[in-house]
Write a protein that binds this DNA or RNA. Structure first.
Length: 597
DNA sequence: TGAAAGCTAAACATAT
DNA sequence: AATATGTTTAGCTTTC
């Protein structure tokens, strides 16, 4: 079964070449999409024949239709690539000028060309469609999922799911839409065996990073899946570690192709040149990943520069306000809990901000890696020997990235002290600087914290003393929300013990088998110990239940309202006797007890 | 070499 | 009943 109809790639062209005034100007093309561009260059460099892609056109379709395009061997002949500083672009691989990069890339490009329809003699369909290369994409090649359709994406399923969810408007997707997203953005899976869907479901169920959310029954089968806010930094970290994530690839080099005076009135044809410039873009292609790129930018992945870039980007500026709506619920609740003090970490300009005063997320920035157990990211960056030698590592162990078994890095998310962290509380995290690298200071801050700093927190802080009871209620509600979300609001001494296993997420049994194999026949007769569903059905199905507490002693329900606000329905055991429910509704501007009934 | 991470397959249950 | 979705177990490969 193919994906349901949805906006296709034509709505989000990966590469748009803009023709203007007879000359073809080529915008900055990230390495992520580089092969797309390369594919459009004609053998022999006949510039007059260089196809142009009008904005909005589907590059995928063009790849298919431009059958007159030939391979890129001319690139090797011209030795253009060799002159580039591709060392950084290829991630962790040290490439000597005489490395086998060209050869390998040639074969890979040939594969790409063939698979994407650029070859003048495309491979038979049986080869191109029924035999996807199950091997992962070679690490020394920039990866374009729309081009390297025969290479298995170098991302784990959890990363793919994460990207899919993050790239959705509501940050929540049903399984079916996750399938569709993956199929759209990674056509490899169109020809992959159907087992990948099983893997997706398996990952959703087992991976602690993903949480099931109830949705209205009339919206089809199944539930919505969201990224657990607690683990979002972990996933982002995992994504950064992925060898060809746009962070790590685009980060190194962006390629600007300046085709000089192509089809110009001056007739200066037959000359193309590639100019490689360094860029700090750490974001995915906003055309391919509109929401994802924006949200990662909003999450501070790219840091200061990303903000600047975003401000200059058409894609981001148009929806900049929208991105402000992406309030991290956990951060919001923490802010509510801890009040304005938590929310106002020395308001300073980003450029002037002291290192380390990054609020809740700041603890995430500290490089607390175990020097003995280097992460791949650290190894990679050491290899590159570039300034970005310190990729922010949120967790000390890869096992805490986004895996099934690791405990959440709540300490990091909360600013709760890690043994290696200088601060032991969120407050201290604000009060103390860190020795973090420059590249750290803007990363992984919660944009929502800033937003609330300007609006939400000010409202709270402006409450007169007579409203302290109200504020206490809000804090209490936020506390409940946090606790329900698995975020401890206790002090550090308790935080470790307060990491409960994520309900419904088993602790790992992966790796080598620790228990004897139990035949299916025996397992089939075991009693049904299926856990109770995590989500509850609201009487009014309009809001989506985010979190609920199955405990009978706590009648808290967290729902997401249609306006993407977080609503807490709290019925204390005593008040429930009288049918009273306090309803708190939180958004990025307000935190008020909305109704009582 | 062992452990961890990730992938795949499969059985089974439940929901639509 | 068929299909989609969700859960769980198991075994494998790869990487560290």
């Amino acid at each position: 079964m193919m994906a349901p109809e949805r906006p296709g790639p034509e709505d989000k062209p990966g590469v748009a070449l803009v023709q203007s005034g007879g000359a073809v100007t080529i915008p900055v093309i990230p390495v992520f999409s580089l092969p797309n561009t390369l594919m459009q260059l004609k053998e022999g460099d006949g510039a007059s024949n260089v196809p142009t892609v009008m904005e909005g056109e589907n590059p995928e379709r063009l790849r298919v239709e431009d059958d007159d395009l030939t391979s890129l061997t001319w690139l090797q002949d011209k030795n253009l690539l060799k002159g580039m500083n591709l060392r950084a672009a290829v991630g962790e691989h040290q490439l000597s000028p005489t490395s086998d990069f060209v050869d390998d890339s040639a074969s890979e490009l040939a594969d790409s060309t063939c698979s994407s329809g650029h070859s003048p003699s495309p491979a038979p369909p049986s080869v191109a469609t029924s035999s996807p290369n199950k091997q992962k994409h070679p690490q020394h090649m920039p990866y374009d999922p729309l081009v390297h359709v025969n290479s298995k994406p170098p991302y784990s399923f959890s990363c793919l799911i994460f990207m899919a969810i993050e790239d959705s408007p509501q940050r929540a997707l049903p399984v079916k839409e996750i399938y569709a997203w993956i199929l759209e953005h990674f056509p490899y899976f169109k020809n992959a065996p159907t087992g990948w869907k099983n893997s997706v479901r398996h990952n959703l169920s087992l991976n602690k990073c993903f949480r099931k959310v109830e949705k209205a029954p009339n919206l089809g089968k199944g539930s919505l899946w969201m990224v657990d806010p607690l683990y979002r930094p972990n996933l982002m970290q995992a994504l950064q570690k992925a060898p060809f994530h746009p962070y790590t690839t685009l980060d190194r080099v962006s390629m600007v192709t300046n085709r000089v005076q192509v089809n110009s009135p001056l007739g200066a044809v037959g000359h193309s040149e590639f100019v490689v410039i360094k860029s700090s873009s750490r974001l995915p292609n906003p055309d391919l990943f509109p929401y994802l790129s924006r949200r990662l930018a909003a999450s501070g992945v790219e840091g200061l520069r990303s903000r600047d870039v975003a401000a200059d980007s058409d894609t981001t500026t148009t929806d900049d306000a929208d991105s402000l709506d992406d309030v991290d619920a956990a951060a919001a609740m923490l802010a509510l809990k801890h009040g304005p003090r938590m929310l106002t970490p020395k308001k300073v300009d980003w450029d002037e901000r002291p290192q380390g005063n990054d609020g809740v997320g700041q603890a995430c920035l500290l490089d607390i890696r175990n020097p003995r157990k280097k992460t791949r990211a650290s190894k990679n960056t050491q290899d590159t020997g570039r300034k970005e030698k310190m990729i922010p590592v949120i967790t000390t162990s890869p096992s805490e990235d986004h895996t099934y078994s690791a405990g959440p890095t709540i300490a990091a998310a909360q600013g709760i002290a890690h043994p290696a962290l200088p601060s032991s509380s969120p407050e201290e995290a604000f009060e103390e600087g860190s020795e973090s690298d420059d590249s750290f200071q803007a990363m992984y801050h919660y944009k929502s914290m800033e937003d609330m700093e300007d609006t939400h927190a000010k409202q709270i802080s402006s409450l007169p003393p007579s409203d302290s009871e109200e504020q206490r209620k809000i804090a209490e509600g936020a506390d409940a929300l946090l606790n329900l979300a698995g975020i401890s609001t206790r002090k550090r001494t308790q935080c470790v013990a307060l990491h409960p296993p994520v309900p419904g997420k088993r602790m790992t049994t992966r790796g080598r088998r620790k228990t004897p194999y139990r035949p299916r026949l025996l397992r089939s007769i075991r009693p049904n110990i299926k856990k109770k569903p995590e989500v509850i059905h609201q009487q009014n199905q309009k809001p989506q239940t985010l979190i609920n507490n199955n405990s009978s002693s706590n009648n808290n329900n967290i729902v997401m309202t249609p306006g993407n606000n977080v609503k807490l329905l709290r019925t204390s055991p005593r008040s429930s006797l009288f049918g009273n429910t306090n309803e708190y509704e939180f958004n990025h501007n307000t935190a008020v007890e909305k109704t009582k009934r």
